[in-house]
Write a protein that binds this DNA or RNA. Structure first.
Lengths: 147, 147
DNA sequence: GTCTCTGCAAAGCATTTGCAACTGC
DNA sequence: GCAGTTGCAAATGCTTTGCAGAGAC
């Protein structure tokens, strides 16, 4: 456990944001100006393997990192990329539904909600971009009874 | 609708594999040897925007493309990257659970199962790699009653 | 005829890696 | 003292883009 590794872990856990590697790099750099981005990446990989943190790999271009190792779901702003924890308990029985129905050995699942964060919700342009992105018709469809 | 676009769509829908751009490029090249990879990427993007296909984004690895535009879930082999449709119906009520519990405007969700495909399941080394990757203890833990 | 699309090659960008110097234990 | 780690820079691999010519309608 080097000083770099400790500081990276501390900064990641300081607030419950889910930073990208380069944002975390900037955060760490305020305390250790000479640290390199490569070191940040290497340690994030090691910390993930140690089970200290989580690497969030669902959709989007950049990976994000989560200082909380326990299983939980996330919600992501499709416009600005902001991520937060989703206030919903893990669906522990979900994987059972696939037993016998698939040829795979199931080992886990990931659930991610997509939407707009409060800031982007206010932005009319962001709404349009988001609806386009998710294939949502401009006229919001009412949920049907059987769907 | 150019010939290239049509062939790309046809090849993507031919079998229900979920190819990466370069695999699809190889498939298309058998019919159109002079097509370029850039054209494949451009058309996959356009077809996604048109709602004809889906782009499956898994950050950290390659994107995969799905010729079926309807919502459905996937299952991914964490060792070889193979993807198949998950035989489970969309959870239409999932997003309701977040109403009022989050500051986000929810617009959708994505659920992905992870595991090993039949081929990789047989590979002892693949199992070890996968367990490491997903933070699963080597000694398979029995499911507890309340968890 | 015009506007879009193509092939090609180069650029972009997040992430990984080789290497020699350094450090924690 | 030595295995493991760092900073740096270059490499990698997927994806996107600029451009001039070609094709769809």
């Amino acid at each position: 456990m080097t000083r770099q590794r400790r500081v990276i872990l501390e900064e990641l856990r300081k607030e419950n944001i889910h930073p990208t590697a380069d944002l975390l790099y900037e955060m760490v750099r305020k305390r250790m100006p000479k640290i390199s981005l490569g070191t940040v990446y290497r340690n994030l990989e090691i910390l993930t393997a140690l089970g200290e943190i989580q690497t969030l790999e669902i959709s989007g271009s950049q990976k994000r990192y989560d200082g909380i190792p326990q299983k939980h779901y996330h919600i992501r702003c499709v416009h600005c990329g902001r991520m937060d924890d989703a206030p919903i308990a893990p669906l522990s029985t979900l994987e059972d539904e696939l037993y016998g129905a698939t040829v795979y050995t199931i080992m886990g699942h990931r659930l991610e909600f997509m939407g707009l964060c409060p800031e982007c919700s206010r932005d009319e342009e962001a709404r349009r971009v988001a609806e386009q992105l998710l294939g949502i018709p401009t006229e919001p469809a009412k949920p049907t009874d059987q769907n």
